[in-house]
Simulated scan of single mutants.
Amino acid sequence: MVIRENFEKKLAELKGKITEMGELSVTSVERAFHALKHQDVEIALRVMEEDTEVDNLELEINQFAIWLMAKEQPVARDLRVIIGVLRISSEIERIADFGVNLAKATIKIGKGSSLVDIGQLEQMKDICIEMIRKSIQSFTEENLSLAKEVSELEDKVDDYYAATYKKLTTYLSEHPEETDQLVQLLFVNRYLERTADHITNIAENTAYLIKGKIYDFNS
């Protein structure tokens, strides 16, 4: 019984590190978009510099998970939890990378006046932040309902992505002289859409943990 309690504590610690990593990715995306919105290159540069925190935590989580598998030799459901941690840490790292990509787009745009309203992009970002937190909570609490909510929110991001893509490409055809900035905003649109995809992967991993079968919320 004591051995089992110790193992459960280690699993809880591992989940706690996933939560910490998730919040770091939230900070990355939030600050990167703030930099974009306010054309703050200095903040964008800090987002890029601080990405190593996420990378280091992913490495720590992976080493912890591998050590736990080697030491405890978990089977069945416990093994699914640890495999889920490994997969989810990779997804979170990719989400933080998209925060860096947003920061790079901000730097390329520079301090020139904004050509178009980025309100839809901001709404996409807000939904992504909600999705990240729900997906991490769904995993740590093993809550299938929250995982399904994440997939429903992804549909909203996809709708915004399509509408924003149409808006930006139309503006681009009318203002070819502003290609550089508009292309970067198209990249931002794509980065946010891909962020939502990776968050949905976290929800799918949670569903696998709970049900023991593979889900495809993107289908």
Rank of each mutant, 00 (worst) to 15 (best):
A105C: 13
V47R: 02
K37D: 14
L36P: 09
I66S: 00
I95E: 11
L36W: 07
N56P: 02
D97G: 05
I92Y: 13
S114Q: 15
D51H: 05
E53T: 03
N62V: 01
K37S: 15
T52L: 08
D78M: 12
I61V: 08
A76H: 09
R94S: 00
I95L: 14
I82K: 03
V54H: 10
I82F: 05
P74S: 13
L68C: 02
M69W: 00
H34N: 14
A65N: 06
W67I: 03
A96T: 05
S90T: 15
K37I: 12
E91D: 15
I83K: 04
A32S: 13
R31A: 07
F98T: 13
Q39S: 15
L45H: 08
L115T: 05
E93S: 05
V81M: 09
V47D: 04
V47W: 02
F33P: 02
E91V: 03
H34W: 14
S114P: 10
L36M: 13
F64C: 04
H38P: 00
K104V: 09
E60Q: 03
R80H: 05
L45S: 08
Q73G: 08
T106F: 01
H38Y: 12
L57A: 06
Q39R: 15
I43D: 05
I92G: 11
K111I: 10
T106D: 07
V85I: 15
A65D: 02
E53I: 01
G99W: 05
V47K: 04
D55G: 03
E72T: 09
V47S: 04
H38F: 13
E50I: 04
I61A: 03
R31Y: 00
G84T: 08
D78H: 12
V75R: 09
E30Y: 08
H38D: 11
A44Y: 04
D97N: 12
L36Q: 09
E93W: 11
E30I: 00
E91N: 13
S89D: 09
E53D: 14
L36T: 06
F98S: 12
T52C: 01
G84Q: 06
I82E: 11
A105G: 03
G84M: 07
Q73L: 13
A76P: 04
A32Q: 03
D51V: 07
A96W: 10
K37V: 13
A96V: 10
I95D: 11
T106P: 05
L36H: 08
A35L: 11
I109L: 12
I107T: 15
S114W: 06
L59E: 06
S89H: 01
A44N: 06
R77W: 09
G112W: 02
P74N: 09
H38K: 09
S114D: 06
R87K: 15
K37G: 13
I95F: 10
L115M: 07
L36E: 04
I43Y: 00
V85N: 09
T52N: 07
D40F: 07
A65C: 12
G112V: 14
A70F: 03
D55S: 10
F64Q: 08
